[in-house]
């Protein structure tokens, strides 16, 4: 019997959603053990459907940038969780050889033009990528992912305007999780109809329910068809940040009732229910899938823990093209000034 295509897709999405959440849970464990590099770790639990739905609609060759809460987006793109986890741990086997970490992970092979730790910092890069794609007529699209915090940054509007003016194959995706660090959106933004802002600049715009991965996917796919023809678009994916801003943030600025209600906006729970109700999987089969993913992410965690640290002299690598330039160490300067010989 041939499986219903919707079933296939549902199971694929379910696995991806579970992978994102499980990855975040493992990386959170790594943090608590002191195994992540850096004091900051931003989890995307509660925002999985935005990552998986939009990525499902993207094609090979498309470029994208993400924000500081972008693990799930990169994972949904096909990233290797081992190399991701290693990068977040600051290890040399990571995507950026331990130079970037959670907030600067990138992979040119998968079109990941970089996660960015400046709110809105990566948005304008997709304008440039879109320009490249337009000039090369390669049919690719460039997608910027960012949070609701970036909706109040000026660069977003410079980017929207130029994309529409130049008819670039660019899509802006706002994963709205209701909070910019500890400030709820309604305390940061005078208006909340973000689609209207985008429409003002000549973009196609829509708002979707971030608990429904199919809705995210279908709307993205539909938009991207026009994006590739030079009609830039804006998509707002409404979700809720289940946890604090960073791993150690206990969210004292929001009340427990709100959190309890917010965490009911769970794309994974909804899709699982749907899959079971349709009879595509039994509960036990769902559990098996979850178990498989846990094993995958356990292995990624172990891989990161067992990977080696970069060697100290690598700090001078990759500031410039090694063919043209390399920084000189402070120690060298001191020894040169004092005529100290090596040793």
């Amino acid at each position: 019997m041939i499986d219903h295509p919707e079933k296939q897709q549902a199971l694929r999405f379910f696995r991806q959603l579970v992978r994102v959440r499980t990855f975040e849970e493992r990386v959170s464990e790594l943090f608590v053990q002191g195994g992540t590099a850096g004091s900051m770790l931003h989890l995307s639990i509660g925002e999985e459907a935005g990552a998986v739905g939009v990525m499902g609609a993207m094609r090979e060759g498309d470029g994208f940038t993400t924000h500081h809460r972008g693990h799930g987006i990169f994972l949904a793109r096909g990233a290797d969780p081992k190399r991701m986890m290693a990068e977040i741990a600051g290890k040399s086997s990571g995507y950026c050889r331990g130079k970037g970490g959670s907030m600067h992970i990138a992979d040119m092979g998968l079109g990941h033009l970089g996660a960015n730790a400046i709110v809105g910092g990566g948005i304008s890069h997709v304008v440039g990528a879109g320009l490249t794609y337009q000039m090369k007529h390669n049919g690719n699209a460039a997608i910027a992912f960012f949070g609701d915090g970036a909706m109040q940054q000026g660069i977003l509007y410079e980017s929207m305007n130029l994309s529409a003016l130049w008819k670039l194959p660019v899509m802006f995706v706002c994963i709205n999780n209701e909070y910019g660090m500890g400030t709820r959106l309604d305390r940061a933004s005078a208006t909340l109809e973000f689609e209207r802002r985008a429409e003002t600049f000549g973009l196609r715009a829509a708002e979707v329910d971030g608990t429904d991965v199919f809705e995210v996917y279908n709307r993205s796919r539909n938009m991207l068809e026009d994006v590739r023809k030079g009609q830039p678009a804006f998509l707002k994916v409404n979700s809720y940040r289940f946890h604090g801003h960073a791993r150690m943030d206990k969210s004292p600025y929001r009340d427990q009732d709100e959190e309890r209600e917010g965490r009911k906006k769970d794309a994974i729970a909804f899709l699982r229910q749907h899959i079971v109700e349709e009879g595509w999987y039994q509960e036990s089969e769902c559990d098996e899938l979850v178990e498989e993913v846990k094993q995958e992410m356990d292995e990624a965690l172990k891989y990161a823990q067992q990977s080696s640290n970069p060697s100290p002299e690598e700090i001078y690598d990759d500031v410039f093209d090694p063919e043209t330039d390399n920084p000189v160490s402070v120690d060298f300067r001191i020894r040169q000034a004092l005529h100290y010989s090596q040793g």
């Binding site: 033009l113 304008s124 890069h125 304008v127 440039g128 990528a129 305007n161």
Partner: peptide, 12 residues
Amino acid sequence: VIVGAAVGAAMT
């Protein structure tokens, strides 16, 4: 965005 678009274009 002039500089930011240049960055993105240069990367691609």
